[in-house]
């Protein structure tokens, strides 16, 4: 006699087999690249406009080779990432401070509400030329565009989180002896941070996009400028090389943030993460 219950051999659905899903995902990417290459060689996609993987992948490798004629690729990456990080950090801090203040002070919030809604309604990218005129073609104008993009995301997240904080939590800590600043640091700010972390990947993505677009419109360094230069020479291979490089960087950035997000939300129920 055995104590163990033998379960019927249940078939695990394919969608739940990790290796299968990974292989499928890789297959889709390879098919996409293969189709692009094939259609390009067959003349369906004109390589003059659409380039081909076999053209722009070596181009990217060439950029990374020492003594490349296209300028230092590491410098471009460094410039773009610096702009991204600065835009992200400044935008997040401003959004947090203003969002918190508006949520805590009703009158302040009401007074500025129409103005902020108006600013938020502007497609922020049209501000890029304004910033370039005002702050020049260097770092500052790119950071400024990133800040305006990140600010509103963090601002709205913080504002809603602090305003809608569970009053039971506040009442409870007050009875437990919390002073005003204890309520801020134990309840309100953690609630705000939780909302900010949830919007972290979106806002970082926007900071990156802001930097690249502003570089494209006017600058002397960065990945956006690299694309603009290639475009000026009708060099679609250079344009696609830049785009692919940017996509890979964004992917890397996003997976780093995903890691950070996971670490900082251990306290959340799984379905809310």
């Amino acid at each position: 006699m055995s104590d163990t219950v033998t379960l019927g051999v249940e078939r695990i659905p394919l969608a739940r087999r990790d290796w299968f899903v990974r292989a499928l995902q890789l297959g889709v990417i390879l098919f996409f690249i293969g189709a692009w290459e094939g259609l390009g060689r067959a003349g369906v996609l004109d390589p003059f406009y659409y380039s081909r993987p076999s053209l722009f992948l070596p181009r990217i490798a060439e950029w990374f080779a020492p003594g490349s004629t296209a300028g230092d690729i590491w410098l471009d990456i460094r410039v773009t990432l610096t702009e991204t990080v600065l835009g992200f950090v400044i935008g997040t801090l401003l959004g947090l401070i203003v969002g918190y203040a508006f949520a805590r002070n009703r009158l302040l919030g009401l007074a500025f509400d129409p103005l902020l809604s108006m600013f938020n309604a502007i497609p922020r990218l049209v501000l890029a030329p304004v910033f370039i005129l005002a702050f020049g073609i260097d770092l500052a104008s790119k950071v400024a565009l990133g800040v305006t993009l990140v600010f509103f995301i963090v601002f709205f997240a913080t504002f809603a989180a602090v305003r809608d904080v569970d009053q039971t939590l506040v009442d409870n800590v007050r009875i437990l002896g919390a002073r005003r600043r204890d309520v801020t640091f134990e309840v309100l700010l953690p609630a705000a941070f939780s909302a900010i972390v949830a919007s972290l990947r979106t806002s970082a993505g926007f900071a990156f996009a802001g930097a690249v677009v502003a570089e494209y419109i006017g600058s002397n360094a960065g990945l956006g400028r690299r694309i603009a230069t290639a475009e000026a020479f009708f060099d679609s291979t250079g344009v696609f090389g830049g785009i692919v490089l940017i996509a890979l960087l964004a992917l890397l950035l996003d997976s780093l943030l995903q890691l950070a997000e996971g670490r900082s939300s251990r306290w959340k129920p799984r379905r809310e993460r």
Partner: peptide, 8 residues
Amino acid sequence: RDALLPWR
């Protein structure tokens, strides 16, 4: 209602 701080 639950009054424990969820992040603690």
